[in-house]
């Protein structure tokens, strides 16, 4: 899987014949690429354009300028059904409106592999169950998706993305709204998937997630990328201050034999 975003600009304003007269540009000349097995964490304040960028990648929004290439082909020229076999979308934790069972929710991921009038068969159920077991939610199969915890629900959506056979997961604030323990448990599974070669784009408000889980960090400010690289190189006091306009101390903590960096605001 290869994702390339080239000189992407986007504006929600009217798409008139004179682009320079359009409203505020949410994204300005954004370029980056992602390959197999990368976890790219997007950091930046609210409203900076992370979600808009993700929507452009998913082919929901048409960029003003620039392009999104997935395996060398423009995201907008894919049929939804084809694109769904490469790209999966995982939104932030929310309470479902309908109480589908966890198994049925995961099974929804196979729909693009089925004919229009086809139902998921036995082999699909087995595949879903084995993926759910792999993620540690096999026991929840018959529970209602309203009745499980936020963390379990995110694992359910991860399982759905895997059942979908996608290899690139776009996760918009996937661990937001989760409590301390749940967000850790979900991110542990994300690391486990990285080892299997899945590529993941994750936006987050938690810089510690970037230090701990990212293979690369993309820092965004006012619709542009201001830094892109390994967490240790990108996430320093200066960039953090630029992003969030507060003074931040970056320290190293030792956990067992490993050491990690953490961010703490300075008062």
């Amino acid at each position: 899987m290869k994702l390339e975003v080239n000189n992407l600009s986007f504006s929600y304003g009217l798409r008139s014949a004179r682009p320079h007269e359009n409203g505020h540009r949410i994204l300005k000349d954004v370029s980056f690429s992602a390959g197999d097995g990368e976890i790219i964490v997007f950091l930046g304040p609210n409203g900076v354009g992370k979600s808009t960028l993700f929507k452009c990648i998913l082919g929901f929004l048409k960029p003003l300028e620039g392009e999104v290439l997935i395996n060398g082909k423009n995201a907008l020229s894919y049929k939804r059904q084809e694109l769904s076999k490469i790209l999966a979308y995982i939104p932030q934790s929310y309470s479902p409106v309908f109480n589908h069972t966890v198994l049925d929710s995961v099974l929804m991921g196979v729909t693009s592999q089925l004919g229009v009038f086809e139902m998921p068969g036995k082999e699909h159920v087995e595949k879903a169950l084995s993926i759910m077991n792999e993620l540690g939610i096999g026991k929840l199969a018959d529970r209602g998706s309203m009745k499980i915890s936020g963390g379990e629900r995110q694992l359910m959506l991860l399982a759905r993305a895997m059942v979908q056979d996608a290899s690139l997961f776009v996760m918009d604030e996937m661990a937001a709204n989760l409590d301390f323990g749940n967000s850790f448990r979900v991110m542990q599974r994300v690391l486990q998937l990285q080892e299997k070669g899945y590529t993941m784009l994750i936006s987050t408000h938690n810089p510690d997630h970037a230090f701990r889980y990212a293979s690369r960090v993309v820092a965004m400010k006012d619709g542009s990328i201001i830094a892109d690289g390994k967490p240790d190189q990108v996430l320093n006091e200066e960039v953090m201050k630029q992003l969030y306009s507060i003074d931040v101390a970056v320290n190293t903590v030792n956990v067992g034999q490993s050491s990690y960096k953490v961010c703490t605001p300075v008062f």
């Binding site: 939804r80 589908h100 693009s112 009038f117 759905r160």
Partner: peptide
């Protein structure tokens, strides 16, 4: 009756359903 599995996908958000390959 024939479409009844797909109708399940109209119960999740528009973006999720589309990302799962549904028009």
């Amino acid at each position: 009756i024939l479409l009844r599995w797909r109708i399940n996908l109209l119960t999740v958000s528009e973006s999720e359903a589309r990302s799962m390959g549904i028009d």
